[in-house]
Amino acid sequence: MLIWEAYKLLGPADGVVLGTTRILPRTTDLAMPHVWDMIGRLGEPVTRSPSAQPLWGVVALAALTTLGIAAAGWLVGVVVGIGLALVMQRWRLAEWGLLPWIVISQTVPLIAFAPVVKSWGSRVEIGSFEWQDWMSVALIASYLAFFPIAIGALKGLQSPDRIHEELMQSYAAGYWTTLVKLRFPASVPYLLPALRLGAANAVIGAVVAEVSTGLQGGIGRILIQFAGQASGDPSKAWAPIFGAIVLGLVAAGSIALLGVMLRNYRRTEEAV
């Protein structure tokens, strides 16, 4: 923030241009509004109409909507990711067969398939269940979230020492008992960073998917909408960006909280 204002104060109005490429941005109020203007703008109403809500309220509501969608996507990602990890841990063959595809799946650009998912979604109708547009967004979020979770969970499930596995074997413990008493607890130090990464991905995925599917109500939508008004109201365009940052912090914070609750399972973490 200090850097921002310092650069704004000292930097040339036209930015720093090297050859024909501008390597540092212009410092005009249009391109870089003052930090206090951006914050002050949050407290003002969205539009000039007398019934308008304050900007921060609109952003917070949009952020909450997006958070809900991202959380749904994250949950799906957790279930799918851990499910895949379980299958891969149990059967070596599945690991060989699945892992390359899981990796390849992440190379498909998000923007490319977001509209495809939306159009598939609009055709899904099972009985009284009707596919909602937000579900497409959640699905895309989960698509980004499941990858780190699958990889982290697999690593975690495979992490118990041989001595512990043999101990369980000596107790004649079966697959499920070993899973619950040994593999899951042992995987916590690997799972937590994976869940954090998955949460960040889910938020990014949800915002980007909102933009590319044009879903109303979320932060992605107002990001585009306010950016369009930036020439007249430059500070306003920054509000959703703050909203997105807070969203990411809330997501990361929830995982940190989870980590505190599970701290007994992280006693070996320094060694990992």
């Binding site: 020492d161 001595i163 512990h164 101990l167 000596s170 040994l182 607890p185 007994n264 399972y265 006693r267």
Partner: peptide, 11 residues
């Protein structure tokens, strides 16, 4: 059974 290393579950 007991092994060379204690093999206690750290959690």
């Amino acid at each position: 059974i007991a092994f060379q290393s204690a093999g206690l579950l750290p959690w």
